[in-house]
Amino acid sequence: MISAILVMAGIGLALGAILGWASVRYRVEDDPLVEKIDAILPQTQCGQCGFPGCKPYAEAIAKGEADINKCPPGGADGVKRLAELLGVEAKPLGEGLEPKPKAIAVIDENTCIGCTLCVQACPVDAIIGAAKQMHTIIADQCTGCELCLPPCPVDCISMEVVKEDVANWKWRYPVHMMKREA
């Protein structure tokens, strides 16, 4: 038992160390503005903005090469926050860019042939499974970017809209009879 805990703790520490080291070693000397923009972007890495990920889009915005209304998952709220950060006028999402309801990918485990193509496609390593093993998506880590859908040769991945339940339910904006208010 103790040794198992130690081994797990060891692995955890080692991975943490790698992660920490990687974040230092592979940090491109960052422009603080890019960082700030990137912090607002939703990190789905879906590429719907036309850039290969959130960071490249952030860089393009910082350079003034891209408009602020290209990220559908960020929605109107995201555009508003970018506008506030950059001191420009907020605007509606760009032509043809519609935010979709939050969804996560689900693998039909009966059909999966374990080819690992989806693992390679997932930008946030939310899929686990080794070669020829059934693959599973960790729901908590899936950002819903849909990048794993096209590569699957047996079309066994589908997107499931996240349903509202008791745990994620939110209080609504109060609708109350308001007599004319200034």
Binding site: A22, S23, R25, D38, C122, Q141, T143
Partner: peptide
């Protein structure tokens, strides 16, 4: 969630 995703994405690239 976004912070986690960013970290995981950076790690994957690394």
């Amino acid at each position: 969630g976004a912070d986690q995703a960013r970290q995981r994405h950076e790690f994957k690239e690394f």
